[in-house]
């Protein structure tokens, strides 16, 4: 049991939530590997984007498992902020003059 369930869930939902949580945790680990290793800056930005999307999925899973709806608010806010961060990073890559030399390394 990975997430502390609420007690009125059926066994089917409990098993499904545990499997999905395992998959998402493995995905978070793999995405962090790419975030650390990523040879160029756009690689890291893509990894950061997927990291926040996986976190949105995990927060939704938490809201489903525990029945606490505040997790869902956090998921909405994280989905909004992730898009802004992606746009800002894309602008940053476009504008920074030294990114041309860094990217070809």
């Amino acid at each position: 049991m990975i997430i502390e369930h609420r007690h009125d869930l059926t066994w089917m939902m409990q098993v499904a939530i545990d499997i999905a949580a395992l998959f998402i945790i493995a995905g978070l680990v793999l995405t962090t590997v790419r975030l650390i290793r990523g040879p160029t800056l756009p690689d890291r930005v893509v990894a950061l984007d997927l990291l926040t999307m996986l976190l949105v999925a995990f927060l939704t899973l938490f809201a489903l498992a525990t029945g606490v709806n505040a997790y869902l608010d956090a998921a909405v806010v994280l989905a909004l902020v992730a898009f802004l961060a992606t746009v800002a990073f894309a602008r940053f890559i476009d504008r920074s003059p030294q990114s041309k030399e860094d990217a070809t390394k």
């Binding site: 160029t40 984007d49 990073f89 070809t104």
Partner: peptide
């Protein structure tokens, strides 16, 4: 977001 990152990656020479 993917379009923006792809465009800026292509523009900075990858």
């Amino acid at each position: 977001g993917a379009h923006l990152i792809g465009r800026s990656a292509y523009r900075c020479g990858i």
